[in-house]
Design a binder for these strands. Sequence first.
DNA 1: CGTGTTTGACCCGCGC
DNA 2: GCGCGGGTCAAACACG
Length: 221
Amino acid sequence: MENHQAIFPCSSSSTSSASDLSLNMVNSHAYTEFQAHKPNGFLGLMTNMGAPNLRVNDVSQSQRFVGTATNEVKSSSGKKKGDTKIRKPRYAFQTRSQVDILDDGYRWRKYGQKAVKNNIFPRSYYRCTHQGCNVKKQVQRLSKDAGVVVTTYDGMHSHPIEKPCDQKSIYRMSPYRAIHSSALAIDVTSIFSLYTEVTAAVSDRTNKDEVQFAKPKHLGP
DNA sequence: CGTGTTTGACCCGCGC
DNA sequence: GCGCGGGTCAAACACG
């Protein structure tokens, strides 16, 4: 596989200024359960996964990572009739952070925000702005724990990371984004290198529902 | 002007 | 069939 350092040039610097950042990654089946407020909800999953309150710098030591390739996702336009449902890999990151927007190095455009049932926090919808890239993500805070942000990714990026290391020069922030994230931008590129590796693995297993845990080589055991 | 957010309206799938 | 909830669209708007 390709060199992650080349894809994520910032992966060596964990400049999280939101000091209380932790992360779990879950498959979307579990995430769906969480959303439905069933007994085996998200918080319970944290315990099951055995990696509660990980700091981002410790992810290499104990992070668990699961994905699925068979979630049904509507095409970009959910309005057309007779659309064949395409399946994309879908992943949910759980991060403990004071900010919603994780600086993953890609450029996202917000295209919607919705109030979610049983959650006091709205869910935000983002789309990758790269031409031809149809990757989407959803960002939502847990109502039970306002410090936890769940970021769900739909699809895989088919292009290199767009944002160089110098956020100030490349990440042209809108005033809105600046308000919410410029001061506390979180560099989680090392986490997203995991995402890339496993999504690639998933793409090779299109007929299987579940994917084995992945251990990123470059992050060590 | 380019880029991005906001937000109400709209569409669709699903459960009852 | 109907209502609800999730996801998306698009016009209006903000800002450098």
